[in-house]
């Protein structure tokens, strides 16, 4: 199994542990990732808020690179994959958009490269049985809530993955590691997305709702697949605690870090020492390292 690997901007910066753990987990599962040469930003929400043609063209440029590699794309980032899938959909549904995008990126792109979320590939193609075969250290003491956020399943016709209101894929992967996967009602609520900087008050409120629900259910960590969710819940956690007078001290782990840990991969190789809220401390307390 081989994919063109599109890490996206965050994985080379604020989410380096997601990149590290993705690469490690894919090696363990025989998924070959070939990082795309000279990939560019997908434009995220900023592009679609500003110029719709730009919002289709930035992802299309990346899809065209993968097309030349003769491979489909995967990224662990929920936002990147949403933008790539949206561009594909619009290009395939409108000849006018297809032509305009080709003019903008100065090359033709036929809309045929598939973009898939790594979570989807692991849950659907690799499957729980193969994941379980790789588990050499059961994470028995770890209690995890799986947080999908907005774009893993929405919009339904773009994502075409899992149950839109009550997804199970990440929960199943977490349960496969031997961890206790706690069911909860905030799987697909929004974390406040891009408002962390321009309207911090909004994100602090939304992050507090999510963190307090996770804490009340006894979770040790929230597993995520979106670098923006991770940032709002972890980097801003101290500010949430200050604003709402709560103590969470809850590291927010990428689901690939949890998988990697159960595969017996060195915590540092997974980037578990890179968290702003101490993840290594939690794992030590749980007797997992």
């Amino acid at each position: 199994m081989k994919y063109a690997y599109y890490p996206g901007c965050a994985l080379h910066a604020t989410a380096i542990e997601f990149d590290k753990s993705t690469r490690e987990v894919c090696v363990a599962l025989d998924i070959e990732l070939q990082e795309m040469e000279d990939w560019n930003c997908c434009g995220a929400a900023a592009a679609h808020m500003t110029n719709e043609l730009l919002a289709d063209s930035l992802p299309a440029k990346n899809l065209a690179i993968a097309s030349k590699m003769g491979l489909d794309i995967t990224s662990p980032c929920a936002i990147c994959i949403n933008r790539l899938k949206t561009a594909n959909k619009e290009i395939n549904e409108s000849q006018e958009i297809k032509e305009k995008v080709s003019q903008v990126i100065e090359e033709s792109y036929d809309g045929q490269v598939k973009a898939r979320l790594l979570l989807d590939i692991l849950a659907t193609d690799i499957g729980i049985d193969k994941i379980k075969e790789n588990v050499i250290k059961e994470l028995k003491n770890l209690k995890v809530v799986s947080y999908y956020g907005c774009l893993v399943t929405r919009p339904k016709d773009v994502a075409q993955f899992d149950n839109v209101e009550d997804p199970q894929s990440m929960d199943n992967l977490m349960a496969a590691t031997g961890a206790k996967a706690i069911d909860w009602p905030f799987k697909t609520v929004c974390c406040g997305a891009d408002y962390g900087t321009p309207r911090t008050d909004i994100v602090l409120k939304m992050a507090n709702d999510i963190l307090s629900m996770a804490k009340d259910l006894g979770a040790d960590t929230i597993a995520v697949t979106c670098p923006l969710c991770q940032m709002n819940l972890e980097l801003r956690q101290k500010d949430v605690e200050k604003e709402y007078g709560e103590i969470y001290n809850m590291p927010i782990l990428y689901f690939t870090e949890v998988l990697g840990l159960s595969f017996g991969i060195e915590p540092k190789a997974l980037g578990l020492d890179k968290h702003i809220v101490d993840a290594m401390g939690l794992l030590m307390r749980k007797g997992l390292i």
Partner: peptide, 24 residues
Amino acid sequence: EVSDVPLMSKIFLWTVKYTGRLYD
């Protein structure tokens, strides 16, 4: 009260325009 939202998007896109990627 909300004008920083489009401002943030514009700055985000400037960094992409001049570097190709998000420059935090």
